[in-house]
Amino acid sequence: MKTLRDVAVGQSATVVKLHGEGKVKRRIMDMGITKGISVYVRKVAPLGDPLELTVRGYELSIRKADAQQIEVL
C-alpha cells in the first residue's frame, strides 16, 4: 500500500482512502483531505517531521505518522 508518507517532496498524489480512526482521522478529513483529492507534498520540516502539504489551495501540516494512514495512488 502506498501512503502519503512515501510521496517525495515536490510530488503530488491522489488520495484513495483514509485508514485509522477517531479524532485525528476526522480532523484530517475536516481539513479537506478526502477521497479523490490531489495532495501536493511541499516540504519536510527541517528536523525531518512534520510534512507541509498543499491541499484545496492552502497549506496544511501533518505528521509523518498520520500521513502513513493516508492511502494514495
Binding site: R27, L60, I62, R63, D66
Partner: peptide, 11 residues
C-alpha cells in the same frame, strides 16, 4: 487528549 497535529499554515 492526544493532540492531533493537523495544522493550517496560514498565508
Amino acid at each position: 487528549d492526544v493532540a492531533p497535529f493537523v495544522m493550517e499554515l496560514p498565508q
